[in-house]
Computed example of a mutant assay.
Amino acid sequence: MAGDEPDRTQSGNPVLGAQTISRAFSVLRLFRDRRGDLGVGTIAKELGLNLSTTHRIVRALVAEGYLAQNTDSERYYLGTGALLLGQAAHRNFALDVVYPVLQQLAAVTGESVNLGVLTADAAVVVERIESAEPLRFTQAPGTRVPLHASSMGKALLAFNADAAERTLKGTRRLHRLTAKTHVSTRELRSELDQIRARGWSTDDEESNLGVRCVGAPIRDGAGLARAAIAVQAPSVRVPDERFDELGPEVTRAAKEISALLPPGHSF
Rank of each mutant, 00 (worst) to 15 (best):
L115W: 06
R29A: 11
A82C: 06
R75T: 13
E111L: 02
Y99S: 11
L118A: 10
D121Q: 07
A82W: 11
R35C: 11
R144V: 02
I43N: 02
G81M: 04
V27A: 06
T138G: 04
E111G: 07
E130I: 10
V62H: 05
D33Q: 11
N50I: 15
A68F: 02
F137D: 02
G79A: 03
L102M: 12
L51E: 15
D121M: 05
A140S: 13
N70M: 07
L83A: 14
Q69K: 11
F93G: 03
A140H: 13
V101G: 11
Q87K: 15
D121N: 12
L51I: 12
L49C: 05
S26I: 07
L84V: 10
E127D: 15
T42E: 14
A140K: 08
S131K: 03
L38F: 07
Q139F: 15
R35P: 03
E111P: 03
V40L: 13
A60Y: 07
T53P: 05
V62D: 02
T71D: 14
T138V: 14
G48T: 01
P134Q: 02
I57W: 01
V117E: 06
G153W: 00
A68D: 12
Q139C: 09
N92L: 15
G36T: 05
A120W: 04
F93Y: 14
I43R: 06
A89N: 15
L61E: 00
L61Q: 04
E111K: 08
Q139N: 05
G79I: 03
R34G: 02
R59L: 12
L115E: 04
G142E: 08
L84D: 15
L67N: 00
H90D: 10
P141R: 10
D33E: 13
L102S: 04
L102C: 06
L147G: 05
G79F: 00
V98W: 05
V101N: 01
R136A: 06
L67H: 01
Q104C: 10
Y66E: 01
G79M: 01
N50P: 12
A149V: 04
E127A: 15
L105V: 04
H55A: 13
T71S: 13
S150L: 06
P146A: 03
A88T: 14
A106S: 13
A132E: 14
E74I: 14
A132R: 15
L115G: 02
L84S: 09
T71C: 09
G48A: 05
R32P: 02
V62A: 04
G153F: 00
R32S: 07
G65S: 04
V124A: 08
G79C: 06
D37V: 13
G142N: 08
A120T: 05
L115Y: 01
L30T: 11
G36V: 03
L115N: 04
T80I: 15
R29S: 08
V62E: 06
V97P: 01
E64Q: 14
R35N: 13
P146E: 00
R75Y: 09
L61T: 04
A149G: 00
M152I: 15
Q104P: 05
E74D: 15
G65Y: 03
A140P: 10
A94T: 08
A94N: 13
A89Q: 15
D72P: 00
Y99W: 10
N114G: 09
